[in-house]
Design a protein around this nucleic acid. Structure first.
Length: 123
RNA sequence: CCAGACGGUCGGACGACCGCUGAUGUUUGCGCAUUGGAGGAAAGUCCGGGCUCCACGGGAAUAUGGUGCUGGUUAACGGCCAGCGGGGGCGACCCUAGGGAAAGUGCCACAGAAAACAAACCGCCCAAUGCGUUCGCGCGGAGGGUCAGGGUGAAACGGUGCGGUAAGAGCGCACCGCAUCUUUGGCAACAAAGAUGGCAGGGCAAACCCCACCAGGAGCAAGACCGAAUAGGGGCGGCGGAAUGGUGCGUUCGCGCACGCAUUCAAGGACAUUCCCGUCCUGUCGCCCGGGUUGGUCGCGUGAGGCGCGCUGCAAGGCGUGUCCCAGAGGAAUGGUCGUCCCGCGCGCAAGUGCGGACAGAACCCGGCUUAUAGACCGUCUGGCGGU
């Protein structure tokens, strides 16, 4: 494992976070929606942006606060590990947790993300 | 050992790698190092407080909401502790909104004669006129007595027994219950004993109500500061409604003009309501200050604080002392993955293997209450069986 492999963001700045409800709504309305078994990804390419911006959402349908927290944490960690290893074009990405997120094997969850981003043409 | 009652504790453990976030140290800085990082309920938001802003002058009455056996405890409580009364259990123990029904109003369905100044459906008893008669009485029943018996009901105007009576009835008596009074014990709720009374006051106040006590409003999206323009807004000054008086100036001596200088009258609004007294606000011009929202900083964790020990109190708790600093986010950290062990379930003869880990996630902070909770453990006590 070469050092430049471990240091992939040769030019890639660290991802930002989506924080405002309007930002989430914009991605949901204009972006592409790619469902997988473990996660639903909403992607909106933003070529002008310097970096990727990430948002995480779990609806109340999935469970109570404890379940939603755990689901969100797994998504956040999976996205972090994926972005550490791969370069992604600037975009706003919203990861929507679902019932399957919690029981999904972790490496499968990462694979779901990779597949979704490939489909979106960002990876 | 079995069955049970009460109280309490814990609520997966360890390690590796990769992360997030607060604090401290260090560095020009990127960063690095050290260290901390969810709960007993963090939940529901049902009570009580701290804190913050607003309102806030006094008195009387009223309204609204809450509490409701007694004593204690506390910053406070509707909490807790210790008792009392009532109910349940063989027992350990458990349950209990438990002031006032002789202040008033109201309600008590169905059934039943009657549901509250009692009352006569059946029955029981007395019995006039009348009819019959073997003159003993029989039939019949105007009217009256009666609540013991029947029947209804959640509840029927004390219960059981004896006497008594035409039949009955607290009509009389004994015991029990009840009421009143006295004494004793207790701070008290209340308890016990005695005397008197022939029985009064049916139940419902979780119906209105009465009585006693308590209570300003809104909440950390409170609130403070920083911050570019406009508006609202704030401060200071001038002017300012009507009448009368006063002062000044002018005057053709009729008066005119100016000025809150004084007094009175003003209209609307605010302080839960009403009343009384009282306070405050309002228009216009000029100058100055100021700055809706978004964002940032503070509020923000040393506190009715945790743990230990001693004294004190039956206890809740109180007093003293030592020691510790123990989450602080802001789309919101407190984690992710893997391994070993523990526990549960499934499969398997077994080694093993697969799946899962109760309820549940801080958001200003405390004291309670309520609700959810797989499983494990500890202590005290009760009943039963066995042994000595």
């Amino acid at each position: 494992m070469s050092s430049d492999r471990l240091d992939p963001p040769e030019q890639q700045p660290p991802p930002q976070r989506l924080k405002r409800r309007p930002e989430f709504l914009r991605v949901a309305a204009k972006g592409r929606k790619i469902p997988t078994k473990g996660v639903v990804v909403q992607a909106l390419a933003c070529p002008d942006q310097a970096s990727v911006r990430l948002g995480f959402t779990v609806t109340k349908k999935v469970g109570n606060a404890v379940v939603r927290n755990r689901t969100k944490r797994r998504l956040r960690e999976a996205a972090r590990l994926y972005l550490r290893e791969h370069r992604v074009a600037p975009a706003d990405l919203v990861f929507v947790g679902r019932d399957g997120t919690r029981g999904r094997k972790f490496d499968r969850l990462i694979a779901d993300i990779a597949q979704a981003l490939e489909k979106a043409g960002l990876a």
